[in-house]
Design a protein around this nucleic acid. Structure first.
Lengths: 289, 289
DNA sequence: ATAAGGCATTCAGCATTTATGAATACTAAA
DNA sequence: TTTAGTATTCATAAATGCTGAATGCCTTAT
């Protein structure tokens, strides 16, 4: 049974005349006749009573006509839905982030997105800057929020510049630190090779600093510093909060700035979903251009 | 768009694998691939994202899958309904009657029928015995209740024997009637050539009786007799009712018996609807065989 | 009575669509 | 590097559906 059987069924039932039905269906009586016959065989019941005057529905035909009509309507619904959602943006976007969501205004972004682009759903994924680049290239992420410089083959939208400072345990003797170089023999809690923070550290202190522990997670690093394990980098405003509480100390000797950017694969810059997402990011972060 | 497109769509969505889908559909990957591609072109949107791992639904694919499934379900409903009502009796039956319905227990018949065979609807039609035979042969009636002998090519189920008597106006001088022959020169209200009552009249009185008026309708004939137009035949029990009221007189000289039968065309005796109807008639009239 | 017109159906041949099987290109895993 | 699994392309074969003329049936008009 195919749709054209049902179409013929319905039209013949309406016209009660095979010839006219054929005209309306832009076909010929033998073709429509065959449709009806096939349908009758398949359903195992007569649908019409043939006479020299035309075709009249049997009782069972009347019964089944309702379902046939319903089935065709359902199909039309599907086609209409496809047409309606033709230019409607729909899709998933796997967004990798390198910080707690609040700081990145992600909640606001999701809120705006669900209002302006209800067809786009976002899958969030925590990762480190370097890994984000890799996974975007591998197709596991669609885009991400990353620190620092952006490799080739990536499109980057600069969101803001962040100030990074050095945090130390509260009982750290900051008097002993005169220049940045004095920090190179201290114990460090580093990120990992995928994090530009570590690059910055190497740039400033050389590669002879000691790494006591590694963690991508800001919160973990903070905890380790709190517990007197060593020094680490942290975003300035966050660090100031914890210093106020007396939990850590801030060492300004290595302060540096770093860009926070939204990145996607260069080749996907014309993807309408990505375009829409960038638009929303611009709004949330108030990026004029 | 045809059903096989939707079937392929649904199965590929389930298996997320063209090869397995093809197996399940007893087909080959190129065929199923073409189905999907055709459907995508027709709907104007991609349904799947192809990868070396298989096929995964796009967002719009997910959206449209619901409708596709619904459409297929609706079609299955129709096929199931056809199968369920396979052995269910359905149809119209045009029943011609030659008397008021009450006497023929038609109300009871309809009641039983609607309980035992809800798919059968009955169209009632008043007519005269002879016309009933003609119209059954012409296909205008499916069956009827008739008086007297039944021609060839008809199946007859005898329902009961009725006593027919002669009715006369109330001021009729019955003393003057010694034998049946005395009635032959009276004025008669006859039925018509299609009614076996007239045959009976001819048989008994010869063809030289005078016909003043004709009517198939019992009520009309009764009215005419009441108004002193002439004599006529009537079923005995009815006649007795009217005699009690003093409206008419009964003349017993020509009394005769006649069968009331249910008839259908002989060739249609195996029609299941007719079989069912006969069964119900047997019940209503308590006909043991 | 006869002819004409409308109806559904049958059938042989044709046109189109659909399915197939081998080959290809790609990717992931071994 | 090879192997296995994926979807796709292509030429060919098979199947399916469509057509137009012819047929039979019936009703209506002549």
């Amino acid at each position: 049974m195919e749709f054209y059987h049902l179409r013929s069924f319905v039209v013949v039932a309406e016209t009660r005349n095979l010839t006219q039905a054929a005209k309306r269906l832009c076909s010929t009586p033998p073709a429509i006749s065959a449709h009806i016959k096939t349908l009758e065989q398949e359903l195992g019941t007569d649908l019409f009573i043939r006479s020299t005057k035309g075709m009249t529905l049997t009782k069972k035909g009347e019964l089944l006509l309702v379902n046939a009509q319903k089935t065709l309507d359902s199909a039309v619904d599907m086609v209409n839905l496809a047409a309606d959602s033709q230019d409607k943006l729909m899709g998933n976007f796997t967004l990798a982030v390198n910080q707690p969501l609040q700081q990145l205004r992600i909640p606001q972004l999701l809120k705006n997105l669900s209002e302006n682009c209800p067809g786009i759903s976002v899958q969030l994924c925590q990762s480190a800057t370097g890994r984000i680049f890799e996974n975007i290239l591998l197709g596991y992420f669609d885009g991400g929020l990353v620190y620092g410089d952006v490799p080739e083959d990536f499109f980057a939208l600069k969101i803001k510049q962040e100030k990074i400072t050095t945090i130390a345990p509260k009982n750290f003797d900051e008097k002993s630190i005169i220049s940045a170089q004095n920090l190179s023999d201290k114990l460090w809690i580093t990120m990992d090779k995928y994090c530009p923070f570590d690059n910055e550290l190497t740039k400033r202190l050389g590669s002879n600093y000691q790494s006591k522990a590694q963690s991508n997670d800001e919160q973990s690093r903070l905890d380790l510093v709190r517990n007197d394990i060593g020094l680490s980098f942290l975003e300035l405003s966050l660090a100031e909060q914890y210093q106020k509480k007396g939990e850590i100390k801030i060492l300004p000797h290595l302060d540096f700035n770093i860009d926070l950017s939204f990145v996607v694969a260069d080749k996907r810059i014309n993807d309408p979903i990505i375009k829409a997402l960038i638009q929303e990011i611009r709004i949330v972060w108030n990026i004029t251009l």
